[in-house]
Amino acid sequence: NITNLCPFDEVFNATRFASVYAWNRKRISNCVADYSVLYNLAPFFTFKCYGVSPTKLNDLCFTNVYADSFVIRGDEVRQIAPGQTGNIADYNYKLPDDFTGCVIAWNSNKLDSKVSGNYNYLYRLFRKSNLKPFERDISTEIYQAGNKPCNGVAGFNCYFPLRSYSFRPTYGVGHQPYRVVVLSFELLHAPATVCGPKKST
């Protein structure tokens, strides 16, 4: 009989979030998941669920729940959905087409922007091929755009693959930082360890 609440607040209220290319994953298990708490945590810009209804979450049980978190800019949030393409979905964080879970995003301009520009958040701009779903690539190998090998040196047709967002508070919403948490629900042929409040007794 599990009584402890799932530590969603640790994920959502973390002081620092990860850069999207090096997104963070927390496995959540053996706890009571009260998803209604999430609705009250922040004024969400996005709370979209796929393959599951957000209002039914509190009635369900899962084997595992994974919470992935990272920062992107406002106009990239739409890429965090099944079947999307674009720089983020292709080279940084890719959801599977049959994704079961929820994408939660909110504006973090007050936390993640600086007047002089916050350069701490990076994204991958160049990659030889698209990522597979939930693949994480943290390599910093020089990207070869031409025929000549780069031998690890940046220059003509040889690019450092990561680029930094420079978040400034005066930017338009599309270029402001957004914190994203992706909850993916895993149903294996194994005992369910993460249940809503109704199912945990």
Rank of each mutant, 00 (worst) to 15 (best):
N1Y: 06
L5Y: 11
C6V: 03
D9Q: 12
E10R: 08
V11K: 03
V11C: 03
N13G: 09
F17K: 02
A18E: 08
S19N: 09
S19D: 08
V20Q: 04
N24P: 00
R25W: 03
K26C: 07
K26G: 02
I28E: 01
N30A: 08
N30G: 08
C31P: 05
A33Q: 07
V37P: 09
V37A: 13
L38M: 08
N40Q: 12
P43I: 04
F44Y: 12
F45P: 15
T46P: 03
F47T: 11
K48I: 06
Y50P: 00
Y50Q: 01
Y50T: 02
Y50K: 01
P54V: 12
N64P: 11
V65A: 11
Y66K: 06
S69G: 01
V71Q: 01
I72L: 09
R73M: 09
G74P: 04
E76K: 02
E76T: 01
R78M: 10
Q79S: 03
A81R: 05
P82C: 00
P82D: 03
G83M: 11
Q84S: 11
Q84A: 15
T85F: 02
T85A: 09
T85V: 10
G86T: 04
I88Q: 03
I88W: 01
D90M: 07
K94S: 06
P96F: 00
P96K: 02
D98H: 09
F99E: 00
G101M: 00
G101F: 00
A105E: 02
N107S: 05
N107Q: 04
N107V: 04
N109W: 08
K110P: 08
K114E: 14
K114R: 12
K114F: 09
V115Q: 15
N118H: 11
Y121V: 04
L122W: 12
Y123H: 12
R124E: 06
L131E: 05
F134I: 03
F134Y: 15
F134G: 13
E135P: 01
R136E: 04
I138P: 07
S139Q: 07
S139T: 13
T140L: 09
I142Y: 09
I142G: 07
Y143S: 07
Q144L: 03
A145T: 09
G146D: 10
C150I: 04
C150P: 04
C150Y: 04
V153Y: 09
G155K: 09
N157M: 11
C158Q: 05
P161F: 01
P161W: 01
P161I: 02
R163G: 09
R163W: 05
Y165C: 03
Y165E: 06
R168D: 15
P169G: 11
P169A: 09
P169K: 09
P169L: 03
T170Y: 11
Y171A: 15
G172I: 14
G174K: 13
H175W: 14
H175V: 07
H175G: 14
Q176R: 03
P177C: 02
Y178Q: 05
F185T: 02
E186S: 09
L187S: 13
L188Q: 14
H189S: 14
T193E: 13
T193W: 09
C195R: 05
C195V: 08
G196R: 10
G196Y: 09
K198T: 13
